[in-house]
Design a protein around this nucleic acid. Structure first.
Lengths: 179, 179
DNA sequence: CCTCTAAAGCAACGATCAGTGCGTTAGCCA
DNA sequence: TGGCTAACGCACTGATCGTTGCTTTAGAGG
C-alpha cells in the first residue's frame, strides 16, 4: 500500500503560481487577503487552496519559510567579523524590501507559529559561521546571543522603529557582539 | 461652527467594551477576527465599529497603543544599570503574557503602521532613563542603540525565537549595552 | 502505451461579511 | 431643565467567504 505523492508537473506549477500570487498580493492587499483572492490571482481554483493548505496561516508559513530559506549564501571572508558584517548586511538588504516586510507582518498575524517561519534558516547560517570560527580556534559568542544581538536589532528596526540600517550601524552592531 | 465631540458617557463605555472584547478575542480567535465578531462580544452593534473605527487595522492600532502605553512605570533605582534591568524585566514580563503577544502579532498583521502602535511609549521611557543618567553626569548610549539592544532582543525572543527571558539573560543584555 | 489514482476543477450551499439609510438614544451646553 | 445633535441601534442588501459532493485532468508506475 504505497502512498504515492505527486510533487512534479501540475502540482509544482500550481504551488509556484500560488506562492507568486501570495508574494504579489501581500504587498498590495491592504483590503483583505483571503484564499479565494489568492486563488484568483494565481489562476487556480479556490478549492485547491482549501484542500491543499487548509488555512491562510499554513499557506503563509510555507511561503515565508521558502522565501527566507536559502536566499542568502553564508559568506566566507576569512574572519568571523567580516562574515557577520557581510551576512548582516545581506539580511538588512532583504528586510529593507517592502515585499519581504509585508510578508513577515502578514505571516506573524496569521497564526502563532509564523515567527519561526519568517526566520527561515538564518539561525542555522549564524551557527555555521560561529562554528567555523570556533574550529579556527577563535573565541565565539553563543548562537543565542548572536541572534539576540544581530537578528533582534535587524528585525526590530525593520518591524517597529523603521529606522534605516546602514553600513556603519551594522559594523557597530557586530562590534558590540564581538567585543 | 464649533464641532463638538462627546468623549464621555456612553461613548467612553462603548470604547472600553470594545477594547476589552478585542483583548479577549485576540487570544482565542484563531478562526477569524472581524468587526462583527468583536461587536457581538462587546455587546455593541457592528455598525458602531464600522462608523467609529472604519477598519480592523485602525481599531487594533488604537487598542495596542493604549495597551502598551502607561502600563510600565519608569523605575528610579539610582543607577542607570539598575533602572534598565528593572525596566527590561518589566517589559519581558509583559511580553511573556500570551495575550500581549497575540495582540502584537495581530496588530502587526493588520496594517503597515502596527509596529509603532505596539511599542507604545517605551521609546520615551528609555529616553527618560537615559536623560536622567546624563543629568547625573554619567556617559550614556544613544536611545537608538539602547532600543536596538534591549527592545530588539526582547521583542525578537518573544516573537521569533520563543526562548525564555530570565533575569541573568536580562542582566547580560544590559551589561552588553553599558559596557 | 495503458492503467490507476492523486490532485485540480466545477457547481452549489449556507453563513457571514462590509456597507447604507433611517429612526432612536443620550451627552453636552445654554 | 430643555433643546440640539453626536453617537448608537436597527433592518436590510449585495458580495464574498469557507465548505462539500462530484467530475475531470494529468502525473507516475507497470
Amino acid at each position: 500500500m504505497s502512498v504515492t505523492t505527486r510533487p512534479g508537473g501540475r502540482s509544482a506549477r500550481v504551488r509556484a503560481d500560488v506562492h507568486r500570487a501570495v508574494a504579489e498580493l501581500v504587498t498590495e492587499a491592504q483590503g483583505e487577503l483571503t484564499l479565494p483572492v489568492i486563488a484568483t490571482r494565481a489562476g487556480v481554483h479556490p478549492t485547491t487552496l482549501y484542500r491543499r493548505w487548509g488555512s491562510l496561516g499554513e499557506l503563509l508559513e510555507e511561503v515565508a519559510t521558502s522565501r527566507f530559506s536559502g536566499d542568502i549564501v553564508v559568506p566566507d571572508t576569512g574572519s568571523l567579523r567580516g562574515d557577520l558584517e557581510r551576512w548582516a548586511t545581506d539580511v538588512a538588504t532583504d528586510l529593507a524590501d517592502p515585499d519581504s516586510l509585508a510578508l513577515i507582518r502578514t505571516t506573524l498575524g496569521s497564526g502563532p507559529d509564523g515567527g519561526c517561519a519568517c526566520l527561515g534558516d538564518r539561525h542555522d547560517q549564524l551557527k555555521a559561521m560561529l562554528e567555523r570560527e570556533q574550529e579556527r580556534g577563535g573565541a565565539v559568542p553563543t548562537v543565542e546571543r548572536a541572534a539576540d544581538t544581530l537578528l533582534g536589532a535587524l528585525y526590530y528596526r525593520a518591524l517597529f522603529s523603521r529606522q534605516p540600517m546602514d553600513e556603519p550601524w551594522i559594523k557597530d552592531l557586530v562590534d558590540m557582539l564581538l567585543r
